[in-house]
Amino acid sequence: MKNQFDTILLGHGSGGKLSHDLISELFAKHFDNDILRQQSDSAIIENPGNQLAFTTDSFVVDPIFFPGGDIGKLAIAGTVNDLAVSGAIPEYLSVGFIIEEGFGFKDLERIVITMADEAKKAGVKIVTGDTKVVDRGKCDKVFINSSGIGILDKKDTHIISGSRIKVGDQIIINGSIGDHGMAVMAARNELNITADISSDCACLHKMIGSAMEASSQIKFMRDATRGGLGTVIAELAKGKDFGIHIHEDQLIVNDGVRGICELLGFDPIYVANEGKVVMVVAAEDAQHVMKALKKHETGKNAAIIGEITGDHKGKAWLETQVGGKRIIEMLSGQQLPRIC
């Protein structure tokens, strides 16, 4: 955009001329669509007469640019995925920016363009938004909040609760674990590590859509973000009338991720992902779902990693790569600060 400023000023959040220019020349320009174009206080959207899924998420990752993505891509993918794993088709997003005074215009523009591209590729519309600028030091560069609405078919409302899970169901994940968390960790210069790791940050709804077309027996989905695969599995088992058995030798951990995990003492099953979904699928449909996932770039390394069992009720067990066994607990505390 043509702008007279290299950096964001407090005035860009004042609601006056500068705000107006920022919105029309940056946000509205890149996010453009029929609903946003109305520039009203609320976006008015058609009610399709189905159930709606509604989600919100805030993004404060540090650093804001990292191999494989940036805070903007994360915001779009994170919100889209939260809808998709609920079984919904993502349709509309809101984006709210909190920007630190003095933040570079070029960086903001770069983030906005990524978001616009990602939304376009995903086929979702950014229909409303907001910008605030805060004093230097009151936030770290830029924080983004994003909410999303998706349309949920009544036959899929059970997915979110996992109420139809049965003993014998298979557990599938669409690829390697730990990439996002370690990519962000390596991108911070604190460690002086150069590692060939890229975040897996990606919208998964198209891949999930294919899987749902291939099988009506997908009984549960959850994106394995903060807390990693381990936390999703532990949460799923907790208080339930079934147990979960995971095979460590079926998990894919890329070499760079493994290297940093070894170095820092992290367990990859607790490291964050931003493009991984854990699915519980009826055994007879597992191969259909695998086939559907593998057709997509985001699912080409999909693997069956475990199953629902009748023993160890309420608990998740990991058969370790050396044949030992241990419990998978939820991650408590943090392995890493501000990864999303």
């Binding site: 370790t320 044949g323 030992g324 066994k325 241990r326």
Partner: peptide, 12 residues
């Protein structure tokens, strides 16, 4: 201790 627990050694 961490390694023993992580790999589930007591089970073996």
């Amino acid at each position: 201790t961490m390694s023993i627990q992580k790999y589930g050694i007591p089970y073996l």
